[in-house]
Amino acid sequence: MKVIFLKDVKGKGKKGEIKNVADGYARNFLFKQGLAIEATPANLKELE
Score class of each variant (00 low, 15 high):
residue 31 F to M: 07
residue 12 K to L: 15
residue 44 L to F: 06
residue 18 I to G: 01
residue 7 K to H: 12
residue 17 E to F: 02
residue 19 K to H: 11
residue 16 G to E: 01
residue 30 L to F: 04
residue 46 E to G: 12
residue 2 K to E: 09
residue 8 D to G: 04
residue 18 I to N: 00
residue 36 A to T: 01
residue 44 L to D: 05
residue 40 T to P: 05
residue 7 K to Y: 11
residue 9 V to S: 02
residue 43 N to L: 12
residue 43 N to E: 06
residue 36 A to L: 02
residue 13 G to M: 03
residue 38 E to Y: 04
residue 10 K to F: 10
residue 7 K to V: 14
residue 4 I to R: 03
residue 15 K to P: 05
residue 14 K to W: 08
residue 10 K to A: 14
residue 11 G to H: 06
residue 44 L to S: 05
residue 24 G to K: 13
residue 10 K to G: 07
residue 27 R to N: 08
residue 40 T to E: 05
residue 5 F to A: 00
residue 34 G to F: 07
residue 39 A to K: 01
residue 34 G to V: 02
residue 29 F to R: 06
residue 18 I to A: 03
residue 21 V to T: 02
residue 48 E to S: 13
residue 23 D to L: 13
residue 13 G to H: 11
residue 21 V to E: 03
residue 28 N to Q: 10
residue 26 A to S: 05
residue 21 V to G: 00
residue 44 L to Q: 06
residue 33 Q to D: 07
residue 42 A to K: 11
residue 3 V to A: 01
residue 11 G to A: 05
residue 21 V to S: 02
residue 22 A to V: 10
residue 16 G to N: 07
residue 29 F to W: 12
residue 5 F to S: 00
residue 22 A to F: 09
residue 4 I to T: 01
residue 21 V to W: 02
residue 45 K to S: 11
residue 14 K to Y: 11
residue 47 L to Q: 09
residue 32 K to T: 13
residue 45 K to Y: 10
residue 29 F to T: 11
residue 12 K to D: 07
residue 38 E to T: 04
residue 36 A to H: 00
residue 3 V to L: 03
residue 20 N to H: 14
residue 1 M to H: 07
residue 5 F to G: 01
residue 4 I to S: 01
residue 30 L to P: 03
residue 1 M to E: 03
residue 7 K to I: 11
residue 40 T to I: 06
residue 40 T to D: 05
residue 14 K to D: 07
residue 3 V to D: 01
residue 46 E to H: 13
residue 22 A to K: 11
residue 15 K to M: 10
residue 46 E to I: 14
residue 43 N to S: 09
residue 33 Q to N: 15
residue 4 I to L: 09
residue 28 N to M: 10
residue 47 L to G: 06
residue 12 K to G: 14
residue 18 I to L: 07
residue 46 E to Y: 13
residue 17 E to Q: 11
residue 17 E to A: 05
residue 16 G to T: 02
residue 16 G to L: 04
residue 4 I to V: 08
residue 47 L to M: 11
residue 3 V to E: 00
residue 20 N to S: 14
residue 32 K to F: 08
residue 46 E to M: 15
residue 6 L to T: 07
residue 5 F to W: 03
residue 5 F to D: 00
residue 28 N to F: 09
residue 38 E to L: 10
residue 16 G to F: 09
residue 19 K to G: 07
residue 21 V to A: 03
residue 13 G to Q: 03
residue 43 N to M: 11
residue 11 G to Q: 05
residue 47 L to F: 12
residue 4 I to Q: 03
residue 13 G to N: 03
residue 29 F to G: 05
residue 11 G to W: 06
residue 11 G to F: 06
residue 13 G to I: 05
residue 32 K to G: 09
residue 44 L to E: 05
residue 25 Y to T: 05
residue 40 T to N: 08
residue 38 E to S: 06
residue 26 A to H: 04
residue 24 G to I: 12
residue 15 K to D: 01
residue 35 L to S: 03
residue 32 K to H: 11
residue 12 K to V: 15
residue 8 D to T: 10
residue 44 L to H: 05
residue 22 A to H: 11
residue 19 K to S: 07
residue 3 V to R: 00
residue 35 L to R: 02
residue 34 G to T: 03
residue 32 K to W: 08
residue 10 K to Q: 13
residue 15 K to A: 13
residue 13 G to F: 14
residue 30 L to E: 02
residue 11 G to K: 05
residue 1 M to V: 14
residue 38 E to M: 09
residue 44 L to T: 08
residue 41 P to D: 13
residue 16 G to M: 04
residue 36 A to S: 01
residue 30 L to M: 03
residue 23 D to Y: 13
residue 14 K to T: 09
residue 18 I to D: 01
residue 9 V to T: 02
residue 20 N to W: 15
residue 42 A to H: 12
residue 15 K to E: 07
residue 37 I to E: 04
residue 43 N to F: 09
residue 48 E to F: 12
residue 11 G to M: 04
residue 3 V to G: 00
residue 9 V to I: 08
residue 31 F to A: 03
residue 23 D to T: 14
residue 29 F to S: 07
residue 40 T to L: 06
residue 22 A to T: 13
residue 26 A to D: 09
residue 25 Y to F: 10
residue 18 I to P: 00
residue 46 E to L: 15
residue 39 A to I: 05
residue 11 G to T: 05
residue 39 A to S: 04
residue 12 K to F: 15
residue 1 M to N: 04
residue 16 G to H: 07
residue 30 L to I: 01
residue 30 L to Q: 01
residue 6 L to Q: 03
residue 10 K to W: 13
residue 6 L to A: 02
residue 22 A to E: 15
residue 14 K to H: 09
residue 7 K to A: 13
residue 37 I to W: 05
residue 2 K to M: 15
residue 6 L to G: 01
residue 35 L to F: 10
residue 22 A to P: 15
residue 17 E to K: 02
residue 2 K to Y: 14
residue 17 E to D: 13
residue 20 N to M: 15
residue 9 V to Y: 03
residue 22 A to Q: 11
residue 18 I to T: 06
residue 27 R to W: 12
residue 17 E to G: 02
residue 24 G to R: 12
residue 39 A to E: 03
residue 38 E to W: 06
residue 24 G to P: 11
residue 1 M to T: 13
residue 4 I to F: 06
residue 14 K to A: 08
residue 45 K to P: 05
residue 32 K to L: 14
residue 45 K to D: 08
residue 24 G to N: 14
residue 14 K to S: 09
residue 4 I to Y: 08
residue 29 F to M: 09
residue 41 P to F: 10
residue 3 V to Y: 00
residue 5 F to M: 04
residue 47 L to S: 08
residue 19 K to W: 07
residue 29 F to A: 08
residue 11 G to L: 04
residue 30 L to K: 00
residue 25 Y to N: 05
residue 6 L to M: 07
residue 44 L to W: 06
residue 18 I to H: 02
residue 13 G to W: 12
residue 34 G to K: 09
residue 38 E to F: 04
residue 36 A to K: 00
residue 37 I to S: 04
residue 42 A to I: 10
residue 42 A to P: 07
residue 25 Y to L: 08
residue 32 K to M: 12
residue 25 Y to S: 05
residue 13 G to E: 02
residue 15 K to Q: 09
residue 35 L to W: 09
residue 37 I to Y: 05
residue 41 P to T: 09
residue 34 G to H: 09
residue 19 K to V: 12
residue 9 V to K: 02
residue 9 V to P: 00
residue 17 E to M: 06
residue 8 D to H: 06
residue 17 E to T: 06
residue 41 P to G: 08
residue 19 K to F: 06
residue 34 G to M: 08
residue 27 R to E: 11
residue 32 K to Y: 08
residue 5 F to N: 00
residue 35 L to E: 03
residue 8 D to Q: 04
residue 22 A to Y: 11
residue 15 K to L: 09
residue 29 F to H: 13
residue 25 Y to W: 09
residue 9 V to N: 01
residue 31 F to D: 04
residue 20 N to I: 15
residue 6 L to Y: 01
residue 25 Y to R: 06
residue 34 G to Q: 07
residue 48 E to V: 12
residue 5 F to Y: 05
residue 45 K to W: 09
residue 46 E to Q: 14
residue 44 L to G: 04
residue 42 A to D: 12
residue 23 D to E: 15
residue 1 M to P: 04
residue 14 K to V: 09
residue 26 A to K: 03
residue 30 L to S: 00
residue 39 A to H: 06
residue 37 I to A: 07
residue 31 F to L: 12
residue 8 D to N: 09
residue 14 K to M: 12
residue 32 K to Q: 12
